[in-house]
Every structure is written in C-alpha cells, then in structure tokens.
C-alpha cells in the first residue's frame, strides 16, 4: 500500500522546548489514520510541519510523495482544518470559502458542493459570527474539502462539539474515506478515534509511541474475562481457581475479573464446573484504545523535562 505521509526524524524545537522529537510516521493512503495523544503531546505541531506552516528543526518528510520543504508542490491536493476553525466573522460562510477558492485558484462551483456535503447550504449566506461552534467546525471541514483533496488533515475536528455533532463529524470522516480520500485526523479523545480510524499513530511528549492498525493494537492488549458465579459466595473460590491456573483475578462486586485471553473462557467454564461452581454469566471485555494508550505510555521511559 502506498503512503500518504512519511516522515523521518522530524523534529521541532521552540527555544528550549522540544515539541516534536524525531517523529517517524508512515501513513497508508486511502484510509482514516488517527493521530492521538494528550493535549500538548505535539499533534498540532506535527500537523503544522506537514502543512509547511512551521519549519522543521531537523528531519525530513514527504506528503503525497513531495518533500515538506516544498509545500507548494502538494498543498493543492491537501485539505486541512487546523485547530479551532478560524474564519472572518463578518463574512458569510460562503464568502469565507470564496476567499480560499480565489486564493487557491479553485473552481468557485466547489463552494456549493462542499457546503452541501457538510449540510450548511441553508446557512451559507449568514455571517460566520452567527454560527454555532459545530457549524464552524463543519465549515472548517468544508474549507478542507474545497480542493477535492487526496489527503485531508483534520486537527481536533470534534473539539467543542456536542454528542450529535461528534456523530455527524464521524460520518463526514467515514464519508471521506469511502470516497478514497486519505484522512489524517488528530484528537485527544481516544474513544472518538477508535470509532472512526483504521490506522493509528500515538504520540506522547513529542515522540511516537505506537503506529499501526487499530485492531492490532487492541488485540495486543490483555483482555478481561468476566465471570459471574451463580452464588456470590463462590467468587473467592473462583479467584483461587484462576490464580492456581496462572491467571491473575480479582473480585469486583459479584463478578470475578480474570486477566486472560478470550480463548481461555471455555477452560474457565470447564474448571469452574469441575469445582462445583455454576456460572450465570461469562463475558469477554476487550481493552479499549484508551487502556491500550496508557499501557503503552506507562511502559515508555521518562524523557527529559524539557519535552513538550
């Protein structure tokens, strides 16, 4: 699979602060790639480097096969929403997009098309200052779609959105991928990324801590088997049984949480039955992306205090 973005040792330092530290990224083309990490991890700075908005201190990168030192050679095929959506408040949504179509020599007919895509056609002639945050976010996505991009970079597109707005934004992002557009979407809300992404890049303190398929990451994490004995009094015996089998377990309420892969669930059922414990419930809880993130970052060595 070809790559939409490749970086090698990409580094950005602001004075003494190392915001992005030797970042190596390889994003497959044609899929939704998530870029996750806590606030201040270096997501926005990395995106700004990819868009030519700031200059790298060290390292190299390519976007759509062109070097990031020559953003004019690829930005015509890239759409971007950077941090909070920024527009001219005393211009209408349509006029705001006209500023960008004129600047980028984009066919003005695209304005109506992208406004329809983000369902803003009926408010297109209102001043942006009258828009809700959700509408501004959608206008930001519309602006990103103006050049009919091959790659769409969205920085925190669900910031400030209500649950309905977040769901709409997910649908928009999936819609882009369905049309074959590579999407690189950053967020500090991991559950949101988990819902929409195929590929994942995790960043913490300016360094990449994981990149690869979302499923692969979650599968690599330890899952929990949750067993519920018919009689709560059997919980302690069930824990002892698991520990004896080399599976750490603990009681939570009337349930027993066992750290074991999904495949061990039938064995647990058999052993419980052999020990005279009847189970009225046996489920497997897979690790969430958030748990996977913390599992990875907790294992990372501490970096020097100057990091972002």
């Amino acid at each position: 699979m070809s790559s939409s973005v490749v970086t090698s040792g990409l580094t950005k330092r602001f004075g003494q602060r190392l915001a992005v530290d030797s970042v190596d990224i390889d994003l497959p083309a044609g899929v939704v790639s998530g870029f996750v990490g806590p606030n201040g991890a270096g997501k926005t700075t990395t995106i700004q480097l990819l868009l030519g908005l700031c200059h790298p201190t060290a390292g190299t990168g390519e976007v759509l096969g062109r070097p990031i030192t020559d953003p004019a050679s690829y930005l015509g095929r890239v759409g971007a929403l950077i941090e909070a959506p920024s527009f001219y408040p005393t211009l209408s949504g349509r006029r705001n997009l006209e500023v960008l179509t004129r600047l980028g020599r984009i066919d003005s007919g695209r304005i109506s098309e992208v406004l329809a895509m983000v369902e803003l056609s009926d408010r297109a002639n209102d001043f942006v200052r009258a828009y809700s945050l959700g509408m501004k976010q959608r206008l930001g996505v519309a602006a990103a779609l103006l050049p009919d991009p091959e790659l769409c970079i969205l920085d925190e597109p669900t910031n400030g959105l209500d649950p309905a707005g977040i769901r709409e934004m997910r649908a928009v992002i999936r819609g882009l991928a369905d049309r074959g557009i590579s999407v690189f979407v950053s967020s500090h809300l991991l559950a949101e990324i988990e819902a929409v992404c195929d590929h994942l890049v995790m960043i913490d303190k300016g360094r990449i801590v994981f990149q690869g398929g979302v499923e692969g990451l979650i599968d690599a994490q330890q899952s929990d088997i949750i067993a519920t004995p018919e009689h709560p009094a059997d919980a302690a015996a069930l824990v002892a049984l698991c520990v004896a089998a080399g599976r750490p377990a603990r009681v939570e309420g009337d349930q027993v949480h066992v750290q074991a892969p999904e495949e061990w669930a039938p064995e647990l059922n058999r052993q419980a039955m052999a020990a005279g414990i009847t189970l009225r419930g046996l489920t497997v809880r897979r690790a969430s992306l958030e748990e996977a993130f913390f599992a990875i970052t907790e294992n990372e060595p501490e970096q020097s205090g100057e990091d972002a």
């Binding site: 868009l51 908005l53 950077i82 941090e83 408040p89 600047l103 050049p147």
Partner: peptide
C-alpha cells in the same frame, strides 16, 4: 489574531506571492 493566516498559507504556501 483570528487564526486565518494558517488557512491562507495552506491554500497559498508561496508566502511572497501571498
């Protein structure tokens, strides 16, 4: 101050022309 310079630079990265 409005943050629109970034939008402009994405659409016209040739800064001298902009």
């Amino acid at each position: 101050s409005q943050g629109t310079m970034r939008n402009l630079l994405v659409r016209e990265p040739r800064r001298i022309q902009l």
